[in-house]
């Protein structure tokens, strides 16, 4: 009698969030896990419901409202879930952990985010090398289209700008710019400072707003990253700093906050980190030197491609970290 294939249970509230790094990483994990096991994805939706979503069918275990897990004791185990699956949650919050315990009692839980982790929860790591143990980091595959580097972004008639990924939430007016962008255009008046915010690119030079264009797609962002002199990410993603990795894969060095998931990428040689505005200005001035920038670009690309550019290695790392059976 053949053994039943292993299963991986993924409990995710963020799965359908199109603009979330948490959703991106969770989906990538699901894809990698599917190479070694059958993946069951559970999202907040009516019990027993099945919603097709590309490669996966999203199973409902019940809900107490849109985006909310069912109340304690009211979760319904999806019919396709059996045995003792490997369990992954996107966020290790109390409600998600309770659901995981109800659907797979007694099973260890791995979490994508939500530190500090609750007892019995194993946080997965996607950035940095904790205490010199790079093997514990999962190099989630972050794809880019290298063709984006062949042509600059159509909305701008120039390249070699300072690309700033904003740290402002909501839909603020482009004028005045976020504080760090104001410091940059004041300190480097001859430089084009392109601020990405709320789906648009605002161009500043000499402390004056020169224009604004829409940035609609991921490919638009890749073109902007590929043709920038450097990328200054004021608020990198908290799990893997995806845009910083993409920038490095295009050979564009990064400048990032010193306390962020992106700092290990900079520390690996792909750029510099800063603590306040004076550090930021000094970092940009340093990377403004052609030789320094070329070195950071070269090191950053090697690092990013090696760690985050290999889908086969990513699948193997997931299998190893989660204890999934290797493919026959």
């Amino acid at each position: 009698m053949m053994d039943e294939p292993r299963q991986t249970l993924i409990c995710s509230r963020s799965w359908t969030s199109a603009d979330s790094e948490l959703a991106f990483v969770t989906r990538s994990l699901a894809g990698a896990a599917s190479r070694h096991s059958e993946v069951v994805v559970v999202v907040p939706s009516p019990a027993g419901s099945i919603t097709p979503d590309g490669a996966f069918d999203l199973a409902g275990a019940g809900w107490s409202g849109p985006g909310e897990w069912p109340a304690a004791g009211h979760a319904v185990r999806p019919a396709q879930l059996r045995g003792a699956p490997t369990v992954i949650v996107d966020e290790a919050d109390a409600a998600t952990l309770r659901l995981a315990k109800e659907l797979a009692p007694g099973r260890a839980v791995a979490a994508v985010a939500g530190r500090p982790a609750a007892p019995g929860v194993r946080p997965l790591r996607f950035s940095g090398a904790p205490e010199g143990k790079p093997a514990e980091v999962i190099g989630v595959h972050i794809p880019v289209n290298p063709l984006a580097a062949q042509h600059r972004f159509n909305g701008l008639g120039f390249t070699g700008y300072l690309l700033v990924l904003s740290d402002r939430a909501g839909a603020p007016e482009p004028r005045p710019p976020t504080e760090m962008a104001a410091w940059l255009t004041a300190r480097f008046p001859a430089a084009d400072v392109v601020v990405i915010e709320n789906g648009s690119a605002a161009v500043w030079r000499g402390r004056a707003l020169r224009g604004e264009v829409n940035v609609d797609t991921r490919t638009d962002l890749w073109r902007l990253l590929a043709h920038a002199k450097m990328t200054i990410d004021l608020a990198p993603g908290e799990i893997v700093a995806r845009e910083c990795v993409e920038s490095l894969r295009f050979g564009t060095p990064i400048v990032v906050p010193s306390v962020s998931a992106a700092c290990p990428h900079a520390d690996a040689g792909g750029g510099m980190s800063y603590r306040g505005f004076s550090d930021l200005l000094r970092a940009v001035e340093t990377l403004g030197d052609d030789e320094m920038r070329a070195g950071a670009a070269r090191r950053g690309r090697i690092y990013a491609d090696a760690r985050y550019g290999d889908p086969v290695a990513f699948v193997d790392q997931v299998a190893r970290q989660l204890g999934l059976a290797p493919a026959l």
Binding site: A18, D19, E21, L165, S166, A169, I196, D216, A235
Partner: peptide, 12 residues
């Protein structure tokens, strides 16, 4: 066509 998908950052 994928959206720009930039993570909405928390309020400054």
């Amino acid at each position: 066509m994928a959206t720009m998908a930039r993570e909405p950052v928390p309020a400054m």
